[in-house]
């Protein structure tokens, strides 16, 4: 069975597999080596960044399932992240629920709330849906800040370091393994989703919803399913943030965060699991690098250091605009092009 890229398969099993060529396997091995070696070689600052990347990957994969794969835009995911974080933090700090159980409950609660706020998608599309999810963002944020009895209002919730199976999860090094273990499972699960019927149904709805219905897909049900899976993953990311940072405040779940996650999947590649990973990495590394840079130039060029927050925003905005202009399909597309180039190298065709 031939593909347009010079790869041949002789069985359906091989055709269905994710890793197809030897180059794929070599690449996978390299990634595995980097992931395993990273915590041993990274400085404390960059190890923290790595952990943030891992959590961002989980959230970005989640948002991409909804927005990139199903074509339903959400501006409420920052707040959904908060639902996961608050639920887990409250359960642990106030009710002494074991962390693992708290996280599972937080995922369930976020799934329900995310799906509920997904109901407008049954009627609305595009910008109108964006407005409806924006309302969700504001309603939830209002609840975080003002529902004092539950969320503690504008006071931060402090969460104790978790103990999982008698193992104190405290250092960035220990967290790294947990976060990346979960992130890898999420990525694999998502990739599997998109080589079978449910993921295909999401794509069908994104590309042509009337045709999807006519082919037998219950469009409404699948839209809500997409909201459910998406919010579950975002809830998971939120709950993990709560326990990793051991502090939960409403400022971390504002509209900025929703937009940041949208930026991740746009820069990485809408509708691509790998793109979510690239986008989450890129959008976490860039501000960290700018911050690091600012720290280094603090003495030599103080004015520049002072303006860093503004510069950071400008660079960020510029990056997004440039991506939209030159690579609307994101980093994933750039990567595919490089791969294709070398696979057929030195022959272009």
């Amino acid at each position: 069975m031939s593909t347009a890229t010079g790869i041949y398969h002789t069985t359906y099993e091989a055709d269905l597999s994710l890793r197809r060529t030897r180059a794929d396997w070599i690449r996978l091995t390299l990634i595995a080596v980097v992931v395993v070696a990273a915590p041993f070689v990274l400085s404390p600052f960059w190890l923290t960044v790595a952990n943030q990347i891992g959590i961002a990957i989980i959230g970005a994969v989640g948002l991409n399932i909804l927005t990139g794969h199903t074509g339903l835009i959400s501006l409420g995911h920052g707040a959904f992240l908060g639902v996961g974080a608050y639920t887990s933090a409250i359960l642990v700090s106030r009710f002494d629920v074991p962390t693992l159980i708290a996280i599972v409950v937080a995922v369930a609660v976020t799934t329900v709330i995310g799906t509920f706020f997904g109901l407008p998608s049954l009627r609305l599309k595009g910008l109108y849906l964006a407005m409806a999810t924006l309302a969700a963002q504001f309603i939830l944020l209002y609840a975080f800040r003002n529902w004092d009895v539950v969320t503690g209002g504008t006071e931060a919730i402090v969460v104790p370091y978790p103990e999982i199976f008698g193992w104190m999860l405290r250092s960035d090094f220990a967290w790294y393994w947990v976060i990346f273990g979960v992130a890898i499972l999420v990525v694999l699960g998502a990739r599997n989703l998109f080589r079978s019927g449910i993921g295909r149904a999401f794509h069908a709805i994104r590309d042509q919803d009337i045709a999807a219905a006519v082919m037998g897909i219950d469009v409404g049900r699948y839209k809500l399913l997409s909201f459910a899976i998406s919010s579950a993953l975002v809830g998971l990311a939120g709950a993990m943030t709560a326990h990793y940072r051991t502090i939960v405040t409403w400022e971390r779940f504002t509209l900025d965060v929703s937009v940041l996650y949208l930026a991740m999947i746009i820069v990485g590649g809408l509708g691509s699991v790998a793109g979510s990973v690239y986008g989450a990495t890129f959008m976490t590394v860039v501000p960290a690098a700018i911050q690091q840079f600012a720290r280094n130039v603090r003495e030599t060029i103080p004015t520049l250091a002072r303006e860093m927050p503004a510069i950071q925003l400008i660079v960020f905005g510029a990056v997004i605009v440039l991506f939209l202009l030159f690579e609307p399909r994101g980093l994933d597309r750039t990567w595919q092009r490089i791969k294709d180039y070398f696979r057929l190298w030195p022959f272009r065709y």
């Binding site: 019927g197 042509q208 082919m215």
Partner: peptide, 30 residues
């Protein structure tokens, strides 16, 4: 009215949608 951004194969497999069973868990494990 095809599903433009996916492959021919996936378009055709969508024709099988009503004949398939769809479970999130089984799918995630693959």
């Amino acid at each position: 009215e095809l599903f433009k951004h996916i492959s021919v194969l996936d378009n055709l497999m969508l024709g099988r949608h009503v004949h398939m069973k769809h479970s999130v868990w089984k799918t995630a494990l693959f």
